[in-house]
């Protein structure tokens, strides 16, 4: 009998912190890339139990708070389910034209949290990340240093940094280096 394969996430063991900021790996989550036109948004939202937002740089959460839908483009969303639920199945029932692709293993995430979280990200992200311009719930596909990331602000002092798994060493290394700078 063959053993069932275990998941190994690339950020295992990657943790760093200072008195004002911590970097921790996010637990496994399932993720879906959704591409759709306007007419499919409402049925997809119903099927997924989370509203696919229509405003740029915004996200929405499901009622239990475990599922988040991120606006990435006029016809593109990233849905993250922290409980790891199957996201393909509910979409398969939606008749309206759309494309759903499972990317649960393409992305991984780091959680950057604390008073110094914003400053740590500002070491490599050229966007305006002030609470005013990038409030709680804001999200954006942007750059961190030399790589593409998707940033979500979970609360005033907590960011989720989504990125492709092969860039894990770089993203963690960059943030670990950035937080050495005490100025926040």
């Amino acid at each position: 009998m063959v053993e069932t394969a275990a998941m190994i996430l690339p950020h295992e063991g990657n943790a760093a912190g200072t008195g004002v900021v911590t970097i921790t790996p996010a637990a496994f989550a399932s993720r879906l890339s959704i591409r759709a036109r306007a007419e499919a948004v409402a049925p997809l939202s119903r099927a997924l139990g989370v509203k696919l937002p229509d405003a740029p740089k915004t996200s929405a959460k499901s009622r239990n708070g475990k599922r988040t839908a991120l606006w990435l483009g006029p016809d593109e969303w990233l849905v993250i389910d922290e409980a790891g639920a199957d996201l393909m199945a509910p979409c398969a029932k939606v008749k309206q034209l759309h494309a759903a692709v499972d990317i649960s293993h393409r992305n991984v995430a780091l959680i950057v949290s604390g008073k110094g979280a914003e400053a740590a990200l500002k070491a490599g992200c050229p966007q305006n990340l002030s609470l005013e311009a990038f409030p709680v719930g804001a999200c954006s596909r942007t750059m961190l240093g030399k790589v593409e990331v998707v940033l979500v602000r979970d609360d005033a002092e907590t960011f989720r940094v989504e990125h492709w798994r092969s860039f894990s060493d770089y993203v963690f290394g960059f943030l670990a280096e950035a937080i050495r700078d005490p100025v926040i």
Partner: peptide, 15 residues
């Protein structure tokens, strides 16, 4: 600034 040594260019590693 940060882009030196290991951070000069991302080294992508496979599974």
């Amino acid at each position: 600034n940060h882009s030196r040594g290991k951070l000069f260019d991302p080294a992508r590693k496979t599974f």
